[in-house]
Design a protein around this nucleic acid. Structure first.
Lengths: 155, 155
DNA sequence: TATACTTTAGTCAAAGAAGGTCAAAAGAGG
DNA sequence: CCTCTTTTGACCTTCTTTGACTAAAGTATA
């Protein structure tokens, strides 16, 4: 294989395959040591090869006992639909349109009624007490990250 | 488990689970001895993992026969518990405290894992791209309306 | 009872231990 | 050459551990 990043990618994927639950937890410094590279190279590998879009979820903790945890998530069949919704949203989103989208997600069985209500509450102009046009931008941001969560959360 | 603080947290939670009334009373120095750490580490563990936001109450006494008593806050009824959380939130809310509250709601079966992730996404500082201190105020507002929704939504 | 001593627990800040970010330098391919 | 990807390292942020100092409560004593 050509370069260090590819080798590390391969290695991490092997670890994932070996682990039963499709989850692997590493010490950044330890892996860096093992492959004789700088620790931040791990961040590069993760950022370019283990993103949400690639079907992985990454969590980490700093400080004593810190770690990086990579989880493979099988993105369910709704992914095209949700990607489509993300496209619709763009940089700003009115409350009305937001409600339409939430309604659509509910009807398409991507969220439950309660989840829909929670999302609507988070996107309500009462909660988002800032001026237009920032409010609509903020609403878009929030809904986009919520959709990402839905995309990469197994039921 | 990774570090001393996590181990002690785990230990205390086991004690709590074992105790009938969800109350546990410890001798700080004794626990420190048991885990071979300095006594003040117990204070750190308590301050970071057994706060009100986490759903615990802590009392203590110094001097001879001193103790630290940790009580898991009784979630009498769902509505009382949620009212209690709303009290904790106040006019502004850090991301950390927000996560503690979401964690507590999950542990108290008020929300599901997915709902928790959705809420966290909505409250994340990445989504809430405005400056402090407004961001913390906004986060408080959003979580308050979400809690209201949970309060008034039948499962 | 007032005072001194002992036994606990609390506070706080410094040091230590991870991981994160970002941009410059280096390399690879077209 | 030009562009895109990879490598590197300086600097940053977060979380944990440690210990010196402080505060409070009980106990013995004048």
């Amino acid at each position: 294989m050509r370069n260090m990043s590819d080798i590390i990618e391969q290695y991490l994927k092997e670890l994932l395959a070996a682990s039963d639950g499709e989850v692997v937890e590493i010490k950044r410094a330890f892996i860096a040591e093992k492959f004789d590279c700088v620790p931040s190279q791990l961040n590069y590998v993760i950022k370019t090869r283990f993103t949400n879009e690639h079907g992985y979820m990454v969590e980490s903790k700093r400080g004593g006992g810190g770690y990086i945890r990579i989880t493979k998530v099988e993105t369910h069949s709704k992914s095209e639909y949700l990607a489509h919704l993300k496209n619709l949203i763009g940089p700003a989103l009115s409350q009305q349109n937001a409600q339409h989208i939430v309604q659509s997600m509910f009807e398409n069985d991507v969220i439950t009624l309660k989840e829909g209500k929670i999302i609507n509450a988070a996107l309500d102009r009462e909660s988002l007490m800032i001026e237009l046009p920032f409010r609509d931008q903020l609403r878009a941001k929030i809904l986009l990250s919520i959709i990402d969560v839905i995309l990469y959360t197994e039921e």
